[in-house]
Amino acid sequence: MSEAVELDPAEAKMWITVTINGSKGTYLVDQRLTLADFIRKQVGLPGTHLGCEHGSCGACTIIMGDKAVRSCLLLAAQADRESIETVESLAEDGVLSPLQEAFHANHALQCGYCTSGFLMSLVARLREGPIESEAQAREALSGNICRCTGYTGMVAALMSLPTPNGQSGGAQ
C-alpha cells in the first residue's frame, strides 16, 4: 500500500477481503475508514454501536479472529483477510442464543445500545471457559460500560448459564 501514502487521505482507498459472519466479501474502502464505520455503514450491519470512539466503553466490541476487539480503534484496512463476527451472528433465524436468552430473562438490558458490545465481549470470554462465580462474571463484564442497568441483570444472566462440569462454551 506504500503508493497510496502520497494521496489525499480523503481519496486514498484500498481493497480488502474480509469474512463477516461467515460470508466472505471484497470491498473497496477508504484507507482511513474505521472498522466500526465499515461494518455499520459499508457492510450495513448497524447492530455494532459507537459509544465513545476512544476504546473505553466497549459498545463497538466485535470478534476478529479469536479476539474481542474494539472496532472503533481499528481501521477497516486492518481487517483485511480477517474473519469478523458481529452481534447479528448470534441468533439463528431469530432464535436467541442461550446468552441472549439469559439477557432477556434477567432484564440485563434497558436501552440496549451497549448490549451488542457486551454480548460480543462475553461470547469471546465464554469460548475461553465457563463463568462460574459472580467475581468471574463481574470481571468478564468489566471491560464494557452500561449506564442503564447497574449490571445486576447481566451478572444474573451469566450466573444462570449452564456450566456442564467444567466444559466451556455452554453459553454460545
Binding site: R40, H104, G112
Partner: peptide, 16 residues
C-alpha cells in the same frame, strides 16, 4: 417486548 430486536442488533437507534 423490546429485547428481541435489541439483542439481535436490530435496534432502531437514530444512526442505525
Amino acid at each position: 417486548r423490546e429485547d428481541q430486536r435489541l439483542l439481535t442488533g436490530g435496534g432502531q437507534f437514530l444512526d442505525d
